[in-house]
Design a protein around this nucleic acid. Structure first.
Lengths: 258, 258
DNA sequence: TTGAACTTCTTACAGCGTAGGCTATTATTC
DNA sequence: GAATAATAGCCTACGCTGTAAGAAGTTCAA
């Protein structure tokens, strides 16, 4: 299950943390930890065990302090997650200039997001409307928009295209992550799991009433040796999506309004 | 935030619950509750307060019993959620035959999913790989496939198209729900919220370094009077997606393989 | 009437985020 | 060098979670 976690406890404080503002006066005992170190430990836990396993006590234990010590560095868990997000968004740097046409650039944007979600599946569960605008998030937003800049789209259309890609990738990678997690947690591959349930399913499933589902389900099972093949699904969906954008771009090139 | 909740504690037991198998012998005190009643109460809570607020104690309180009483009817919380999902998937019935061409049928599939997610935002947080195949989930899967049946696509392509639509809708509606929840929780509209943060953002955001983001962000803010307009975003994305499917369908009609 | 089957309630456990208060440590000021 | 102020870190405590274990109460079949 997923519950919607959102960062953004106090956005102003989060922004200060993210941009390294508010250097504190130099009194009192020397800090044992740093915000970056705490975020790194938290990211490690979330990557390995999921966002549900991420607790202040758990992070503190990892760092050899008590839970309450973390509150000297970070106002709360929500702001810590804000920092985590900005860190992983900037993980491998944000490219400056990208060669190729809009299609290959957009494809790269989508694949980078896909890879990032696979590396950090907990990102799927972090609410990103009203994102806290850390340095990396801003840089990446600019980078993504540049993929569709200068090809005849209006500013609004550029924003819509980038949002659409983001929405689709989120949905697609979620399927992939859920499949992987299900296999890991049950120790059974998808095909083994479904075969195990086949006898019970046969009792309740009326193939005559639902012939299309029966045929397609069987075909998919044979083809993938699983109920789904998320990577292939992503490739297929991305290709269709970009085909659809191409129609828009051509229309714009001919001077038509959508 | 969202944590990934998934139903599916014991799938076999869930299937029995969903299909009303395992009528129990008639001894002992008369049951005060029914599985359907419990699921209805749980759906009400999840709709109104979110999946995070859904606890066994909360459901029990709603029904005037103690938490542990529920365990006579349902093996656990995970299986309860399985039942909830199947119920809302069948909520308004699953249509038998749909008029129109593949495009209007697919559009209808997407809009029904969109509406369902808006009515029951907690569905976004329930893992659906390895779904528990209740009667309504099966019926809807068949219905969705029928939207793209008989137009020249292979079984695999039909499955891929339906998955792609599902993935996109999930991603798009998630944005919409997050925005609505953010407005509800903060009591501030999107535009008011961003304007409030503008001074702090101006301090850290370098418009010269990120000219595209600056321009597009400003344009979007003016156009939507918000950072995003989810309904418009959905319409735009769906149109592009269906344009992309049209390319595929035309290619199939010409006998080409993808 | 008795016993089995079943429902319901009580108790308990370990874990969560974090408020409040305390002590120990350090840099600055006199 | 001593006093002071500010900070770091720890401890305790609250109400919440899902559900295991077991006791108590209710209803039917024999």
């Amino acid at each position: 299950m997923t519950s919607v976690y959102g960062g953004s406890g106090d956005p102003a404080r989060s922004i200060e943390l993210l941009w390294g503002l508010r250097e504190p006066p130099r009194r009192g005992p020397k800090p044992k930890l740093t915000v970056d170190g705490i975020a790194a430990a938290a990211i490690g836990i979330a990557d390995a065990e999921g966002l549900a396993a991420l607790s202040m006590r758990r992070v503190a234990a990892e760092l050899g302090v008590t839970a309450m010590s973390l509150y000297s560095y970070v106002p709360g868990k929500a702001e810590l997650i804000d920092v985590m997000v900005d860190r992983v968004v900037g993980e491998n740097g944000v490219p400056d200039h990208e060669p190729g046409g809009w299609r290959s650039r957009l494809e790269r944007v989508a694949r980078q997001a896909w890879d990032r979600y696979l590396r950090h599946p907990w990102l799927l569960q972090v609410a990103t409307s009203r994102p806290v605008l850390g340095p990396n998030i801003i840089a990446r937003y600019d980078y993504e928009l540049r993929a569709v800049a200068g090809i005849g789209l209006s500013n609004i259309e550029m924003d819509l295209v980038v949002s659409m890609i983001a929405d689709y990738v989120h949905g697609a990678v979620r399927t992939a992550v859920e499949l992987a997690q299900a296999e890991q947690q049950t120790g059974k591959t998808d095909i083994a799991w479904w075969e195990e349930r086949a006898p019970l399913l046969a009792k309740v499933f009326d193939a005559e009433r639902y012939p299309v589902a029966a045929e397609v389900g069987a075909a998919a099972g044979e083809e993938y040796q699983a109920a789904v093949d998320p990577a292939r699904s992503f490739e297929f969906g991305l290709a269709r999506l970009l085909d659809g954008v191409a129609v828009l771009v051509e229309r714009a090139a001919r001077g038509e309004t959508a």
